[in-house]
Amino acid sequence: MKPLSLFFKKQYAIEEKIQRLLRYLEDMVQLYQGAFESYLDGSFEDLNQGNEELSKIEKELDDLGRQIQMSLLHESLMPDSRDDLLWFLTKLDKVPSSFKHSLADITLEKPEIPEDFQLPLKNMLLHTHDAVKALANATDALFSDLRAVRQHVEEVGRQESLVDKIEYKLLQSIFENEKFELARKYQLKGILKQLGAVTNLAEDVADAVLILATKHFT
């Protein structure tokens, strides 16, 4: 039983929807990682299947996002908090889209990934997964325990920095490799940039979480 649940039914209902939204986000990053790895392992079919499931969840996530927005607009939250939350949800909404864009490019271009890129790319995916998970935790903390926000946000930053390092090394090796044609170099660069964009976005949203937490803390 939550404290004073009689008085705060509306607030608890919105919190519950946000929790569901975060679980969807975690499911999506899991699927994204799985689908990308399947492609790296050579299973184009699994990539397609992952892509479809991702689209399905994204639709549910969009519906839930709209429900939350409606609740925020109609449940007479204080305008200041409401505006902040709407601004934040719009930012958060971009993360699932980034998974879709990344996988869509691979599905369309079917790039040939060099053998020695497999492990670093899987590491990038792992850190991306951890960054999004930390983002979900930071967002969860924004609605449950503001004190824990900073720790999760810092974790997002740490994972993003690791992704950046791997991305830079791979880009270096791509452009130093004289065997690759220029077109292939730019294709691989595009795939890497899309993957790196997920953690960049996660870091951007995590900063927004920190701003909101700081604003409401002071």
Binding site: I14, E15, M78, S81, L85, F143, L146, H216
Partner: peptide, 21 residues
């Protein structure tokens, strides 16, 4: 109140409800 809010770390939406009450 600031000290208390900081110590409790109440979430955004719940804080909104508590403030209203």
């Amino acid at each position: 109140a600031k000290k208390f809010v900081k110590k409790m770390g109440i979430g955004l939406i719940r804080f909104d409800g508590y403030t209203r009450l």
